[in-house]
Amino acid sequence: MLELRDVQTYYGNIQALKGISLKVNQGEVVTLIGSNGAGKTTTLRTIQGLNRPRYGTILFEGKALETLPTDTIVRLGISQSPEGRLVFPRMTVRENLEMGAFSRSDKEGIAQDMERALNLFPRLRERLAQKAGTLSGGEQQMLAIGRALMARPRLLLLDEPSMGLAPMLVEQIFQTVIEINEQGTTVLLVEQNARMALAVADRGYVLQTGRIVLEDTGPNLLRSETVRKAYLGEH
């Protein structure tokens, strides 16, 4: 479904991605783990065209993405819950969700997906008329994911959904990720919380300073010596 081939992205003269190649197949949950600054967020931003790769190809269902504008990429079926959530603080929760469906015009489908998002995150239903800037961090995270789902994406990019959340909420968010995947959405999940991410993922890639150093199935990576030492804090 999605394939990156030797993608290299720069910030000015600093090379953030030093040749990333990865694959996401239809129906999978694939995770990208690695420490701070490894290039996880940059990978997602590059897929969506927020950063441009200097070299390499990005194919989504056979279509090259690397020169397309972000809004076209969203229309092709890739949406994202970004790092830092980036909800619209001065819009209500309802307006934020509606913005998620900006690229669509099928009123009925949008209403269905609104219902689905609110069923996944009942907390949001209670806060529909509230300004998003007044929500707690966890609620904003739910809103960011719900908003990304409103595009009815075929591929959902999730950037650190567990960031800054209480452990109970983290578990709930990952439970929701599984649910979303079971409802038919392919997921590419970026996480620092490697244990949780690998537990829900079919396959995973380990990123280190802009390079992929390891790839395997989720369970295999959980058992791997390198991952245990570097990312799960076991010795």
Partner: peptide
Amino acid sequence: QNRDAAKIMG
């Protein structure tokens, strides 16, 4: 309110 967020809304 947020240009990047607006972009990823399409």
